[in-house]
Each structure stands twice: as structure tokens, then as C-alpha cells.
Write a protein that binds this DNA or RNA. Structure first.
Lengths: 205, 205
DNA sequence: ACATGAAGTAGGCAATGCCAACATCTAGTC
DNA sequence: GACTAGATGTTGGCATTGCCTACTTCATGT
């Protein structure tokens, strides 16, 4: 029963092993056959669950976005104890993003691998948008209580997301040089706060 | 003479063809043997110029950074005609970055492929740092003429670079959704201006 | 002239992705 | 309970790839 002809949940097992490989040796080291060996099935079994190698990578990326969405949402939720105004929540989300990015750089690079412009897997795009939505909601909250300046919350949140993502991306790419990530992150959050706050003096040029 | 045993400048020919392939079909479609066929040499000839496939990709990335450095520097230079204060120059650099990123998304993703954290090719890292230096100089100029707030120019410029890079990255990844890149770029520049300007009101929390 | 090394060639090997054909298990259906 | 259909897994094959080890050709300095 336990080790019958069929595996039970091969798809999940493949994804789990794939994520470990990606994290350890990078996405280029990902091999369907090696994966099958590791999991203990024949070399063609993965094809029953993933059309081709790229489909597996896409699934990995979508799962990564789903997990990141949860972590960002958890960081964004205002805590019962403490003030937790929008700026604190924004900083918390930024920290959560940086934590995710630095603890799983391989997965993150897979998530943003830009072979998804034209022939994008819709599920993957949707997962990415769901992740962005966390920040949209946060910005909308800030506008509702008057902390954040007026403007399309989608535009503003994209800017904030992009800035944090850029810092994390530079960090994992080794381009931050000797500048510690948390310092750069504090800086970027400070700039965002300065640029988004409702009571800032005329900053339009 | 022209088509003798040796090629003449095989290394450059391989790099040129490789960049075209990367731009058209992505870095995963890059094959040393196909490259050799395209250029008209035997399948082992590229090994005389690149230790392995990764070495070729690294060289491609370094060349990309070199070209981007030139374009950013050109955009950063204050024009003889017109005012060209630091903010205009900053916006111009941001536009130049976005242009480069969107016109060569494949090359850009190769440049930032984060397999260069530990075993980084020193030439590649240096090329990246040279590129960042353009923005460092720009920020230093802004601080010199009192436009930009005091602070480590390296830190501030990294923030600006990261923000712009993040927007470009989201754009090529299709995560900007229906938000046009130039709009997002204007927004991020506005936020940066608001966050970096010297005369802003107390924005430190 | 001739040795030396750089640059290109030819062939081999293991690994990979994908495909087709076959085997086994699971779930309905009568 | 037998039967069938489809999902899941296996085996074998093929073209391609990266890398390795010779071997060949050319250019250059003495």
C-alpha cells in the first residue's frame, strides 16, 4: 500500500524537492530526471504532472508568490498591541519582503524570471498580482486615515513595491557592495515615507 | 586570407551572436554548440575563449553593464543647453535606465542573474559597480550644490538606483499590470525627489 | 629553419528534455 | 463482481548539449 505502483502525491514531492534544489544550486541546476531520481520515480513520471521543465518552474514561482503573499499580509496586518500606524506597517512589510528575498534568493529569482511577458502562465501572473495587492490595500488604508497623500493607490503601491524589490534584488545580486541590506532598507523606507506622506511640503518638482 | 583556418575575432563574434540569441529567446536558449554553428566554427572552438558556458554569460553581463554605464553617464551629463539641474539629470538617468531595460530585457536579466554572490567574476562585479558609480557621482553633485540632503552618497544613490531598477524589473516581469512604465517611472522619480531633497520638511519619522 | 604556443578541429561520453509505447492502478458502471 | 476508461508510472529511444582528450593548423620570435 505504502509503496505501491503510484506515488501518492508526486506533484507536491517534486515541487518540494525542486525548491530545495533551486535554493541550493540555482534554477539552472534543476533537472527533471535528477528530480525523479531523488523522489524515487522513473525519469518520465514528472511529465504526468508538468508539461515540460518550464511548467515546473512556473509552478514553483507561483507557489513562491503565494507564500510571499501570506508573509507580507501577516506583516501588513495591524497588530492588536501597539500603535501600528501605516508607516510601521509599511516598514514591517518591507522587512518581511527583504527577509523572504534574502532567505530564498533562488526562489525569488525564479519568481521574477521575465520569461512571462507574452506567454505568461495566467496562474503565475495572478499569484504575482495577489502579492502586489497586499501593498495596494496597505496604501489604501493609509489614504483612508489621511496618512498617505491622495493618488491612485495602485500607482503608489507599485512604486513602494518596486523600491523595496529593487533593494532586495541589488542585495542578492551583490551590488549593494558593503552597504548592509537593513541600512539600505531603512533608507528606502524613509524615502518612501518622505515621498508618500500626505503632509509633505510641495514635492511636485 | 579572409577565410583562413583561424577566425580573426571569434570571441567578439560569439558575444555578438550570443547577445542576439539571449534577446530573442532568452538565456536558457543559449547553446555553445549552436553559437559555434551560427558563427561557422567547430563545436569546440568557443572553449578557447570561454572556459565554460557560464563564463560566456558572465562576459555578456559585463559587456551589458559597460554599455549601460555609458548610456547612464551620457544621460547624467549636464547638457550645455538648458538648465539641467540634478533633478532633471536624475530623471534623465532614470529614463535612460528604463529605456535600456525595456529595449534589452534579456540582457538585463542576465546582468542581474544572482549567481554572482560568492563565486562572482571580479570583472563582472567591477562592471556593475562602475555602473552604480554614475549615480553616486550624480548624488554627490546634488549634495555639492545643496539640492540633495546630506548623507552618505553611496547609500542615497543605492536607494535611487534600486527604486528605478525595481520599477524596470516589475515592468519586464509583467507585474506592473496595466500601469504604463513611464507613469510608474515618473512616480518613482517624484518620490525620490520628495525623499532626497535637502529642503524637505522633517521626514525622519 | 624551427620550436612554441595560440586557435581551431574531430570525436567521444554522460546527462538531459522530450516523445512514444507499454504497464498498472483507480473509479465508475452495468 | 467483471469491464472499461483514464490517470499515473515505467521503459526505451532520440537528438542535443556541455565538457573532455587528442590532433591539426597557423603565427611568431629567434
Amino acid at each position: 500500500m505504502t509503496t505501491s505502483y503510484h506515488h501518492g502525491d508526486l506533484r507536491a514531492a517534486l515541487l518540494a524537492r525542486a525548491e530545495a534544489v533551486v535554493e541550493q544550486d540555482g534554477v539552472d541546476a534543476l533537472s527533471l530526471r535528477a528530480l525523479a531520481r531523488d523522489v524515487g520515480v522513473s525519469h518520465a513520471a514528472p511529465a504526468r504532472h508538468f508539461r515540460d521543465r518550464q511548467a515546473l518552474v512556473d509552478a514553483l514561482a507561483a507557489a513562491g508568490f503565494a507564500r510571499m503573499t501570506q508573509e507580507l499580509a501577516a506583516a501588513s496586518r495591524p497588530t492588536a498591541t501597539g500603535p501600528a500606524d501605516v508607516w510601521d506597517r509599511l516598514a514591517a512589510v518591507a522587512r518581511a519582503y527583504a527577509d523572504f528575498a534574502t532567505s530564498r534568493p533562488g526562489l525569488l529569482s525564479v519568481m521574477y524570471a521575465s520569461k512571462h511577458a507574452e506567454d505568461a502562465d495566467p496562474a503565475l501572473l495572478e499569484a504575482g498580482h495577489a502579492c502586489l495587492q497586499v501593498v495596494v490595500d496597505l496604501v489604501a488604508d493609509g489614504q483612508a486615515d489621511g496618512s498617505i497623500a491622495d493618488g491612485d493607490p495602485v500607482e503608489l503601491s507599485r512604486v513602494a513595491f518596486a523600491a523595496v524589490h529593487g533593494v532586495a534584488s541589488l542585495s542578492t545580486g551583490g551590488l549593494l557592495e558593503d552597504l548592509p541590506l537593513d541600512v539600505a532598507l531603512d533608507r528606502v523606507v524613509a524615502v518612501l515615507v518622505g515621498g508618500l506622506r500626505a503632509d509633505r511640503q510641495r514635492a511636485d518638482r
